[in-house]
Nucleic acid binder design. Structure first.
Length: 414
DNA sequence: TCTGGGGTCCTAGGACCC
DNA sequence: TCTGGGGTCCTAGGACCC
């Protein structure tokens, strides 16, 4: 039987801000941006939550509910730094640690009793260590499965530790709302409510076959979860196994919707560069490029194409993203969001001809040099020539609509 | 309520192959 | 030729998580 900890930082972003500016303590604080910006709340202090402000809420709404709140853009690098500090502490308690996100982690504490004592003692020691070494509060859930520990840490908030004894999993879960189960969101919650199912216990009493029929594979996993078992893809498997990323993406929502072909193309170039850079940093090559397009009315489409050979070059990503864009954007229609995603990631480049290989090698060197310049002088220091110059001019003068047939110059493919 | 950005997983249909 | 079944790859969309 396993002993799994789930550790979750309390109001993480806000708490880190308080470390750097103690005057924020006790105040209603919202991290995510200015109240008049497009965007949502990333984190809200407990004082702000009293006014009904919560994460994922539009900033404008948060401002309406709590006008006196202090709105901050936030400092992502500080959050990463503190996340790293927490990770270091956790590694002293178990060799099997997995950061599930920037502010939460799983630890497999099975077999650590000789070193750290029984689960509850170890959990309190860990809780204390995190507090003294980072000045941050966290909550810890302890049980025999990832799922139950995650639910337990949530119930322990704020600043608490909760141990669900082995064998008590189903009884612990039974009185909770179905929404408390990880993976049950708004839509599934409504579907379950429509069936008269409100508590986890209601689910656990059902036949598995009933849920399987109604919800397919997901229903089967749901039946297991209601009984306290780890079920469903990401809950299975060893803790800390460390899997390779499946996709990388960047997207941008414009302050004001735009139909300006030049602005859109420059954005596409910037996004492609950011994705390409991350691919090179992680030594990965992508075979599939996806464009994401969101219009004024929030309707969103994605269009993807799989390449013959995997790439990590900005130019290849941009070329494909542009093609997809030209094919799918109705010129003149204002765009709210653009996104570029790379997927089907591979550790090695695709098969190329000698000519392609030479071109690709030279580009890689140039781009790595550009990456280094950006490290030193900032993101705006270097940009693909074609991003701000060439293709924009070409399009506005020769092909205003950006229609296929006279696109930007590309090297001929052998 | 006027809705970010970075991810994962699942489903379903069509193409294509044997 | 009026027509099966399974496997794999690809694409699009959607639910969900932090």
């Amino acid at each position: 039987m396993r002993t799994i900890f789930h550790l979750d930082m309390d109001a993480f972003f806000v708490s880190v801000e308080e470390v750097f500016d103690p005057s924020l303590k006790g105040q209603p604080v919202v991290v995510g941006g200015r109240p008049d910006q497009r965007g949502v709340v990333s984190a809200a202090s407990y004082a702000a939550r009293k006014f009904g402000v919560h994460s994922a809420m539009p900033l404008r709404t948060a401002h309406q509910r709590c006008p006196q709140a202090i709105f901050l853009d936030g400092h992502p690098h500080r959050y990463r730094e503190y996340s790293g500090k927490v990770f270091e502490i956790l590694q002293e308690y178990s060799p099997q640690v997995e950061m599930a996100s920037i502010d939460e982690a799983y630890l497999d504490m099975t077999g650590t009793e000789r070193l750290h004592g029984p689960p509850l003692k170890a959990a309190h020691a860990l809780h204390e260590a995190v507090k003294t070494r980072t000045q941050l509060n966290c909550s810890i859930g302890v049980s025999t499965s990832r799922m139950v520990s995650k639910v337990a840490s949530d119930q322990a908030k704020p600043n608490g530790v909760l141990w669900v004894l082995p064998g008590m999993e189903a009884r612990f879960l039974a009185p909770l709302e179905v929404r408390q189960i990880p993976g049950v969101g708004k839509v599934t919650e409504k579907a379950l409510h429509d069936l008269g199912l409100h508590r986890v216990g209601d689910l656990a009493r059902l036949e598995e076959s009933f849920l399987k029929e109604r919800f397919g594979q997901w229903g089967l996993a749901l039946a297991g979860k209601a009984r306290g078992l780890d079920a469903g893809a990401w809950f299975d498997g060893e803790i800390g196994a460390g899997e390779a990323p499946k996709s990388m993406s960047h997207e941008h929502t414009f302050d004001v919707d735009t139909a300006d072909a030049g602005v859109l193309d420059t954005t596409l170039a910037r996004l492609s560069e950011m994705v390409g850079r991350r691919l090179r940093e992680q030594d990965l090559f992508a075979r599939t490029v996806q464009l994401k397009l969101r219009y004024q009315d929030f309707s969103t489409i994605t269009r993807a194409r799989t390449l013959d050979c995997a790439t990590q070059l900005d130019t290849d990503l941009l070329e494909e993203a542009r093609r997809l864009f030209r094919k799918n954007w109705k010129a003149g229609r204002p765009v709210r969001l653009l996104g570029v995603q790379a997927s089907s990631l591979e550790a090695a480049p695709g098969q190329m001809s000698l000519l392609e290989d030479e071109k690709s090698r030279r580009w890689s060197k140039a781009l790595e040099a550009a990456d280094r310049l950006r490290d030193r002088y900032g993101e705006s220091a270097v940009s693909l020539g074609s991003a701000v110059g060439g293709s924009f001019r070409q399009r506005t003068h020769e092909n205003p609509a950006g229609l296929p047939g006279k696109g930007p110059k590309t090297e001929p493919r052998p």
